[in-house]
Design a protein around this nucleic acid. Structure first.
Lengths: 394, 394
DNA sequence: ATCGCGCGTGAATCGCCAA
DNA sequence: GTTGGCGATTCACGCGCGA
């Protein structure tokens, strides 16, 4: 991946020339479960490379509002018009985006992944930059709001969603975490879709200052962050948020027994986030037991079934209709006894593929063994081995 | 808007240097209800400037598939791998996007608007380019699919949506069509949101070739296009689709009594689209009667109510609670009789605003008149005048 | 204690025309 | 180009208060 290497070189260059504070001239050890106060690019450049499992980022949206907005009853809408959300131009916003994404790439593990949330004002810039920097987009996710603000002037559709992008560090990245089974189980046993429905953050969850005003203009709901962490990280992983704000990511990470690193420039936000984290307690470990994942079950070679005596060499395996036959050899390979593929010797998967003239085949479900009560897929034997292994591990 | 002017200059330059076919060296008259066969940039450059009300575009998604995809049962997924969907790089895709967007901008009326649909593979490029070219994004819309294709590998979330961008020709564009009332009525009388739910195009609606294979890999559902046309155009408007494909936009436009112009490069798609259009018939006009829109109703001055004798000078108007009072003057202005604002003379709106200490007020709904059966908003009297005007117009 | 009502409010690129 | 007048325009949810 020459392009990735070029990007990494740029990233190193950027971090070398970045202004250093007194804290350290070389990357610190990983400051786990800490809120760092400062500019995120500068702070990221002090962290060790390839040390973070998951990044969640809620960057400024660059809203560019003109004038005030009033409701039909003449009350004023308290809009996001903070200085930190103002950029001079798309060019300036792109430069900002490029800088923090490069800094994030450096600290991400090769198996790590990145989530960014935004609206139509900024998300297209972020998505394009991710592609330009050779991140690899895995999904775009839509957060549908149950209770969005209406369009008061009746000139557009109600802006009822925000967009998240989930990306791996680079093309062909292997080993990023996706807890497929847990997501599926959480979605009535069908695959979790790319459109999620959550209320906006309000009520008791919304942090307020002493005067009862909202502490942060864009506090995200914990349920949204929790789904991200449950989908794309494991307990004990390191989760980093370069724009921590009111601290939702840190609080949810602590609750879900992930480590967090938060970066926040604004002192009052950082202090409120710290207080919030201090008041948050991890859930009981039992509540976080990972959902059973077929993918993470120990790999069992068919040969080990032969070794364990569950299948005797010389046995004939068949397909579900008992028309294709294959002989089990002592080394755990099969030898096809029927056309097409007659004489083929190979793994259960290759033999099954050859028997069907297909490019691939899951031999565990294709091949069956004769029992007193009819044909049984050999996958059932694998299940036996796995349960034995689980008992032995305790 | 100097930036817009610069973009328009570029656009003119692009159209001047575009290769010309024999058809014409200067822009033709608008070829209404026609399918043009050819490259969309070349064909667009032959159309008169500022002549189109609405553009719907479903450009190539640049899917960049690597190898084939199979379902768990080994059946092959018939993916979009057509030549027209392949681009060498993001730069090449961006250049393509820039070219057709500039060509579209030239033919769009200043009051026109543009819709583009895409997935995460291309929509970020399109959205960024729209912003770079100084289009003005009005909404991003999510098409949620009721029946998306599952993720067969279990490595990502089910990709269950596509994204549409709705944009005006330039910042501060006035007069783009948005049929707010119709959308609200279609959504159980609450504002239409930015997330829409439709099934993918399948079954009888899906065009098939002689062998029963799907004719076009990305045929869009008519319901999706219909909502767009119903939301953002009027009967008789000109709707243009630069990537017509199987002709959905043309067929829906004909059905909804909009004019269409379709551009399609591929001969077999263009022919199928033409046959489809020929077999499509417009809906009865009554079915397309626009939903009543307060915004478009004829303006009625309060003074005309006085002139017509519906309100007598000297009458006292009150707010809904009968606490604020104002005297109707012979010229149709009001004079406030109560504090705050006591003595203020002005229009029903200014008097209402003064009475409330607000910056603005809709006097038609604020002021009430005493009838035998209680207070009635003066808006009801306006309705009487309007219905008289409608009868007189017939 | 419970229910119903009124009020506040949320990442918003939020009007159009004539003078 | 700017200004000012006319007049059109909101949904879901949480909380507090009073019956």
């Amino acid at each position: 991946m020459p392009k990735v290497e070029a990007v990494e070189a740029l990233s190193r260059l950027a971090s070398r020339s970045a202004p250093r504070a007194s804290r350290a001239a070389t990357p610190d050890a990983l400051p786990l479960d800490t809120i760092l106060r400062g500019d995120c690019v500068a702070e990221l450049s002090r962290l060790p490379a390839q040390s973070v499992d998951l990044v969640f980022a809620d960057p400024p949206y660059n809203l560019q509002l003109q004038g005030e907005l009033r409701r039909p009853d003449e009350s004023r809408v308290d809009a996001v018009d903070d200085a930190w959300d103002q950029f001079e131009s798309f060019q300036a916003y792109d430069a900002f985006t490029r800088a923090w994404l490069l800094a994030v790439r450096r600290v991400l593990k090769p198996t790590g992944s990145l989530w960014v949330i935004g609206s139509y004002h900024n998300i297209f810039r972020v998505g394009s930059m991710l592609q330009d920097l050779d991140f690899w987009i895995l999904n775009d996710i839509v957060w549908r709001k149950t209770n969005p603000m209406p369009n008061f002037r009746g000139r557009r559709f109600t802006n009822a969603h925000e967009t998240l992008i989930w990306a791996a560090r680079e093309p062909n990245a292997k080993g990023y975490t996706f807890n497929y089974e847990a997501m599926k189980a959480a979605n009535e046993d069908v695959q979790m879709r790319s459109d999620w429905l959550f209320p906006i953050c309000s009520g008791g969850e919304r942090l307020k200052d002493a005067d009862g005003h909202k502490l942060h203009p864009t506090q995200k709901p914990e349920a949204l962050i929790a789904r991200i962490l449950l989908a794309a990280s494991k307990p004990g992983d390191v989760v980093l948020d370069p724009f921590l704000g009111s601290g939702t990511t840190a609080a949810v990470a602590k609750k879900l027994r992930r480590h967090f690193i938060g970066i926040e420039r604004d002192r009052s936000y950082a202090e409120a986030a710290q207080a919030r984290v201090d008041a948050t307690h991890p859930l009981p470990e039992a509540a976080l037991a990972p959902a059973p994942s077929a993918r993470e079950a120990p790999r069992v070679a068919f040969a080990s079934l032969v070794e364990r005596g569950l299948v005797t060499p010389g046995t004939l395996l068949t397909d579900a209709r008992a028309q294709v036959k294959a002989l089990v050899r002592a080394d755990g390979t099969l030898s096809l006894e029927t056309a097409p593929g007659l004489g083929t010797v190979g793994s259960i998967h290759r033999a099954g593929a050859a028997a069907q003239g297909a490019g691939a085949c899951n031999g565990w479900t294709y091949w069956h063994i004769e029992t007193g009560e009819g044909l049984m897929p050999i996958d059932r034997l694998r299940a036996v081995v796995r349960s034995e292994m689980a008992m032995a591990a305790e």
